[in-house]
Write a protein that binds this DNA or RNA. Structure first.
Length: 477
RNA sequence: CGGGGCAUAGCGCAGUUUGGCAGCGCGCCUGGUUUGGGUCCAGGAGGUCGGCGGUUCAAAUCCGCCUGCCCCGACCA
């Protein structure tokens, strides 16, 4: 089996690169740092998109689309923003064979162009709040890329909202953080730690950034979604003003938030094993695969007929696929679907036909232990129930893994040991100098200041001064 | 962008040191055999050796430049 996929324990990084390609999620493109998302990977992304979009709509947001090109000067209007993004901009200098008067940047994110438009659209407190999301591609000229985790071009959603008051904008920022957490936990089956970014890790141009941080199977952290409170920074840069009830001219308060195709990488590295992908049932392109089994010609007809009838019965209930491929042994097909991470496999052969049963094999429990015999009469109920068990099971497994690799540390030595294998929670005084020193010495950064705080006060893990917050430390992707 | 490695059939690799017929395994196609955890046999197709230039009677092999990928670092959703 090891011939087919490098084991995670041998080289996690290599395992990741192999499985992304072997499971047909994506392929390299001829352009550096760009990827082709293949149909299987794209369907997974579509399911992620649908699950998030449903939540956005339910909380009053609407979708729109803003253009890919942004005048260079727009980026320069917000000092921190331009400083943060300038090094990774793709710039268009020519169009239609002529040099452009003003270069256009390919959006790395859309705060600026959306800010410009909001300034035109917002006049009165009656125009607020504006709650717009867009599904788009963005480009960041990263130095080092990896499929799904960091590509030059990536797909994401970016929400951009404008509010009359600071409180409302803060509330929106946190509402989205909760929404992302809910999606990660319930649909992607990824336990995440929501919290605030430190000053040095926050979004360029934000007052505060919030994040959901996940632990991958190699103990490293992956920032899986962010929600930014932008204060009035972009309102002032783009002159987004409105008249309030008292006829006073005010700047709006804005937020922005995003989840990207990186989420696919998060799913791969949270649940995958040495057999391949393990996809959460709620998001899996195919939730159930039926593998028919026969020995003789006679059996073949009977089994296929039963398999097709089973397929038709399940189709209204789950995303099911019937593997009718000729010339592949059942064992070969089992491995093939395991590689692709299909959560549940139904094996149907002559023995099952005789007894009115079908064998269900869970992807999250390898071998015989994950198999169960279902009565054919009750598959419409039993199969969705099993999928729910898999969904809950992989979440539990991921949570157990994270907890087993997270340590409350009280000494700097203990922190060093902890971040070599996972996360460390430790008191931090808030001084960027301590944060920078820890990063320098351990490669670990503050992933976030978790929402879940013990309260009270302690001693900074680095300098020993009084500290009021516990920080989550870890090495990150 | 700095350091290291790599680029030969769809995939994984050998051949490069010492220049001389482009090979192996898997996959793919055809026929048969097999099918409850990666069947077996026979036959077959497939390569301007990453690109450009140079040296040479002769270059996958030597030299120069370029491009891309992987790993480590700085940057980052």
């Amino acid at each position: 089996m090891a011939d087919f996929l490098t084991p995670q324990s041998e080289d996690f990084s290599r395992w990741y690169n192999e499985i992304v390609q072997k499971a047909d999620l994506a392929d390299y493109s001829p352009v550096r740092g760009c990827m082709v998302i293949k149909p299987y990977g794209y369907t997974l992304w579509e399911n992620i998109r649908e699950a998030l979009d449903r939540r956005f709509k339910a909380t009053g947001h609407v979708n729109a689309y803003f253009p890919l090109f942004i005048p260079m000067s727009f980026l320069q209007k917000e000092a921190e923003h331009v400083e943060g993004f300038a090094p990774e901009l793709a710039v268009v200098t020519h169009g239609g064979g002529e040099k452009l008067e003003e270069p256009l940047v390919v959006r790395p994110t859309s705060e600026t162009i959306i800010g410009y438009m909001y300034a035109k659209w917002i006049q009165s407190y009656r125009d607020l709040p504006v709650l717009i999301n867009q599904w788009a591609n963005v480009v960041r000229w990263e130095m080092r890329t990896r499929l799904f985790l960091r590509t030059t071009e990536f797909l994401w959603q970016e929400g951009h909202t404008a509010h009359a008051t600071r409180e409302e904008a803060l509330e929106e920022t946190m509402r989205i953080l909760d929404l992302y957490t809910d999606f990660a936990v319930n649909d992607a089956a990824i336990p995440v730690i929501p919290g605030r970014k430190s000053e040095s890790e926050k979004f360029a141009g934000a007052v505060n950034s919030y994040t959901i941080e996940a632990m991958m199977k190699d103990g490293k952290a992956l920032q899986s979604g962010t929600s930014h409170f932008l204060g009035q920074n972009f309102a002032k840069a783009f002159d987004i003003k409105f008249l309030d009830e008292n006829n006073q001219l005010q700047y709006v308060w804005t937020t922005s938030w995003g989840v990207s195709t990186r989420m696919v990488g998060a799913i791969v590295m949270t649940h995958g094993d040495d057999q391949g992908l393990v996809l959460p049932p709620r998001l899996a392109p195919t939730q159930v695969v039926i593998v028919p089994i026969w020995r003789k010609k006679k059996e073949r007809e009977a089994v296929l007929e039963a398999a097709r009838s089973l397929y038709e019965r399940l189709r209204p209930v789950v995303r099911v696929h019937l593997d009718e491929r000729e010339g592949f042994s059942p064992g070969w097909k089992f491995h093939d679907w395991e590689m692709r991470g299909v959560p549940l496999r139904l094996e149907l052969g002559p023995r099952d036909l005789a007894s009115g049963t079908v064998v269900a094999a869970r992807r999250d429990i390898p071998g015989r232990e994950g198999k169960r015999v279902l009565q054919m009469a009750e598959v419409e109920q039993a199969v969705p129930a099993l999928l729910e068990e898999v969904q809950a099971g992989i979440y539990r497994k991921a949570l157990d893994f994270r907890e087993a690799h997270t340590w409350e540390v009280e000494s700097y030595e203990a922190l060093k040991e902890a971040v070599a294998q996972g996360f460390a929670r430790a008191w931090w005084c808030g001084d960027p100098a301590c944060e920078a020193a820890i990063k320098e010495e351990t490669k670990a950064t503050i992933r976030c200041l978790p929402q879940d705080q013990p309260g009270g006060k302690g001693r900074c893990i680095y300098c020993g001064k009084e500290a009021h917050e516990v920080a989550l430390f870890g090495r990150a992707y």
